[in-house]
């Protein structure tokens, strides 16, 4: 019964995977988001491989030599990471993944005495036996090896005209202090002056959660929400941040795809949710031209907003961004 269920699940997931590939081929985006769908495809492929292994080993009673199993696993992993996983991952990551898979295969083949024996026996036979078959394998192996090494060396040395890889730092370290409109601001200690309660006292991070669902336009809105509202007006009006960062703050504004990379997606837990409020203040004030050398190749088109907005306006925009995304800025004790 269990096997039939596995079989059915595999079929369904396989069908979904095939349909998604068909959608992708036709230029459609698929009916659920790409990330989730890709995960489903990966799971489907994994289940399918397990199912196939079960059929071959237990049903058809075909024993695959360990060495060959290793080769099959390597090829299957390569297909998953290179072909099935979409959009394609960068080559550097592929190399890391395949390196780990290669090591894993060696560990798998030598994990216990029996496996090691099965794995190493054909290699030993190829190296030591006096049979004609072993000799033939030897000739092939020891002819292919130097050729492969030579080809590798040639590929490495031949001049290429490809774009170099870039190690871009997405979150560069801020300076200790910055000068904004003639005032030196200590980035280690400065707090958002508009994160305040109704009495004007600093509202500790986390306490604003009660206002996340409240209406900033309400007449009885808290002081915090009033500041958020003003920040929103700057985001959508004065500064027009939404044209790049999107009206859902997801980095998909109408100008976004003119840039490479596209603007930061504040709704992603990997951007402002990872940062302290004063870090965001630094990035807003100094923009792309103000990022340090370590962020080479300075792939940020954001203007230095200190040239267009007051300090108060910039702080309010930041307050709005955290409120809208319902993220809290990162804090590290007092």
């Amino acid at each position: 019964m269990m096997k039939q269920i596995v079989f059915l699940i595999t079929l369904v997931i396989g069908f979904l995977a095939a349909s998604q590939m068909a959608f992708a081929g036709g230029g459609a985006t698929g009916f659920i988001n790409a990330g989730t769908f890709a995960l489903v495809i990966e799971l489907g492929v994994a289940l399918f491989v397990v199912f196939l292994a079960w059929i071959v080993k237990d049903k058809l009673k075909i024993g695959i030599p360990k060495l060959l199993q290793g080769v099959f696993i390597w090829i299957a992993a390569y297909i998953v990471f290179r072909v099935i996983l979409q959009p394609p991952i960068p080559f550097t990551l592929l190399a890391v993944y395949m390196g780990i898979i290669t090591i894993a295969i060696f560990l798998y083949c030598s994990i216990d005495p029996d496996s090691w024996e099965q794995f190493s026996e054909p290699i030993r036979a190829m190296l030591q036996d006096d049979t004609g078959k072993a000799k033939a394998y030897r000739y092939v192996t020891f002819t292919a090896l130097p050729l492969l090494i030579g080809f590798g060396t040639y590929s490495k040395m031949v001049p290429k005209f490809e774009e170099p890889v870039e190690l871009r730092t997405v979150h560069p370290a801020p300076p200790a202090s910055i000068n904004v409109h003639g005032e030196i601001i200590d980035l280690q200690r400065v707090l958002n002056p508009f994160r305040v309660d109704n009495e004007g006292k600093y509202l500790d991070v986390g306490k604003e959660v009660g206002d996340f669902k409240n209406n900033p336009f309400a007449e009885d809105a808290s002081q915090y929400l009033k500041n958020v509202k003003e920040g929103g007006e700057i985001f959508f009006g004065t500064a027009g941040c939404m044209f790049c960062h999107g009206d859902n703050l997801d980095g998909k504004g109408m100008f976004a795809f003119a840039f490479n990379p596209i603007p930061a997606n504040f709704a992603d837990p990997g951007t402002i949710a990872q940062l302290q409020e004063n870090f965001v203040f630094w990035r807003v004030t100094k923009g792309g031209p103000g990022v340090p050398r370590e962020t080479f190749p300075w792939a940020s088109a954001m203007p230095p907003w200190e040239k267009h907005l007051t300090k108060d306006e910039m702080w309010k925009v930041i307050l709005f961004e955290y409120w809208h995304t319902e993220f809290f800025p990162r804090t590290f004790g007092s």
Partner: peptide, 12 residues
């Protein structure tokens, strides 16, 4: 942070 070429970045 992935290491990649601008073309790979665009494809992603």
């Amino acid at each position: 942070t992935l290491v990649m070429t601008p073309a790979e970045l665009k494809a992603m």
